[in-house]
Amino acid sequence: MTENTSTNKINSYQKEKNREEMRKQIITFALMIFFTMIAFFAVAMGISSMFVIPLILILAIVQVGFQFYYFMHMKDKGHEFPALLIFGGIWVTFLVGVTFVTIIWW
């Protein structure tokens, strides 16, 4: 009997933790929508491309960071190897991106 109640206690503690986590996720989501709107507005307003392109790229990168670290839990323990390989992929992406915008048409 005692054992049962103690597991229930752990459970409610866990529940609370999950709820706390969920609150963070919603904030994340709100920020993501917010960034998206800024990006779309900036383009719709027709601000000069010299300014707008870096802006929307940075917004995209930050947004994707949220997606990875919060929605996909990369901030949590046990994600060292996933993070390593995702960053490896991002590194290759960077190389590919730089190459394809600079030396394809040389």
């Binding site: 996933p82 995702i86 992929g89 991106g97 190459t99 394809f100």
Partner: peptide, 17 residues
């Protein structure tokens, strides 16, 4: 997760193209 690392490169190449 590891598969997603590979997918990142896959899309990187499509984006580059």
């Amino acid at each position: 997760w590891f598969f997603l690392g590979g997918e990142t490169v896959l899309f990187a190449c499509f984006f580059g193209t």
